[in-house]
Amino acid sequence: MRADRGLGLALRYAAALLVLVVFLFPLYWLFTISFKTPEEIFAYPPVWWPASLQLGNYAVLFKDGDAWTVWNSLLIASVSTAAAMLLGTLCAYSIARFETGGDNFAMWVLSNRMVPPIVIVFPVFLLYVRLGWVDSFLGLIVLYTAFNLPYVIWMMRGYIQDIPLELEESALVDGCTRWGVFRKVVLPMARTGIFATAVFTFVFAWNEFLFALVLTRSAVTTFPVQVTHYFGGQSNFWAKIAAMSVLGTIPIFVAVAALQRFLVRGISMGAVKG
C-alpha cells in the first residue's frame, strides 16, 4: 500500500514538473533570445544559452525611444483600471443592493463586454477624429475604461452580494451614512475581490491591441503595437522582439506577484454567482 502511494505521489510530481517545464519553456526561450546575437538566434542546433549577454539588444530600445511605449501602456492601463474600478464598484453596489435597472440589468451590462472590438473600432475612430482624441492618452484611457467597465461591474456585483447584508444594516443603525457603509464596511470586506478584479482589468488593458493600433500614430504608441513594428516583409528583428517582450512582461509579472495572495481566493469568490 505504501509503495503504491509513493509511486502515485512520484508520478503526480513528475507530471506537475513536466507541465511546469512545458509552460515555462517559452518564457525561458524568449528571455534567452533577448540576449543572443543574430548568429545564435538562427543557429542549428539551437544555442540554449548565449555565449555572452548582449545587453545592446535592450540598450537600442532605450536609445531609439521604443522602450517608452512600455511606459505609455503602463500609464494608460493603470489610469483606466483605476477609473474602471472606481466607477464599476459604485455601479455594482447600486445593482447588488438596490436592484438598479431590474433583474436583468446585470446580464445586459455583461453582454456589452462581449461585443467584438472590430465591430465598434471604426465608428469610435470617426468619433475620435471629430473630438481630436486620436493618438492621445485621454482617448485610450476613456475607451479602455468604458470597455472594461462591464467586466468590473459584473465581478464586483458578485463579490458585494457575498457580503452579509446584516453588517450594513448594523452600521446604518449605529448612525453610519450609506456612503460611510460603503467605505467602511463594503470596501474592506470586498478587498480580495477588488484586487483580483483590478489585476485582470489591468491585464486586459495592457494586452489590448486593436483599439491601440487604429487610434494611435506615434505619440501614444503602446507596447503591443510597438512589437509589431519589428516584423518586416523581408526580415524580422527577433532580438528586438524578444527584448521588448521581456520589458513588456515585467509590469504584469510585478502586478501578479504583488497581488497573488488575493487572486486565488478572489477568483473563487463572487464571480461564480449569477
Rank of each mutant, 00 (worst) to 15 (best):
W238Y: 13
V199A: 02
M189D: 10
W49Q: 11
F209N: 02
V47K: 10
F223I: 10
R2F: 12
G158L: 10
S235K: 07
L7K: 15
N148T: 08
D4G: 02
F137L: 11
A219S: 15
T37E: 07
P164Q: 11
L131C: 01
Y159D: 06
I194M: 15
L149M: 10
W108R: 11
A14K: 04
W238G: 05
A16G: 08
E168D: 00
P38W: 09
L172T: 08
P26Q: 07
T32C: 11
S78P: 00
F209I: 06
G270Y: 08
A43T: 04
F182L: 14
G233F: 13
G56H: 05
L263K: 08
R97L: 12
R5V: 13
M156H: 00
N148G: 08
D103Q: 11
A82H: 01
V256T: 09
V214A: 04
A16Q: 13
I95V: 15
V119I: 13
V129Q: 14
P26A: 04
E166T: 12
R113Y: 09
L53M: 13
A43P: 00
D64W: 15
A92D: 04
P224A: 03
P188W: 11
N104M: 14
I250T: 06
R5G: 15
F35G: 01
V214Q: 09
L17T: 12
G175L: 12
L138V: 07
V173H: 12
F200G: 05
L140H: 09
A257L: 14
T32I: 12
N236V: 14
W48A: 13
L172R: 15
S170T: 15
S268F: 13
D66F: 12
L110T: 00
L53D: 08
G248W: 05
P251H: 09
G270V: 01
E168K: 13
R217T: 14
W206C: 00
Q54R: 15
P46A: 14
R265H: 09
L172Y: 04
L61F: 09
A257Q: 07
L149E: 05
A171Y: 09
T197C: 14
V203M: 15
F31M: 14
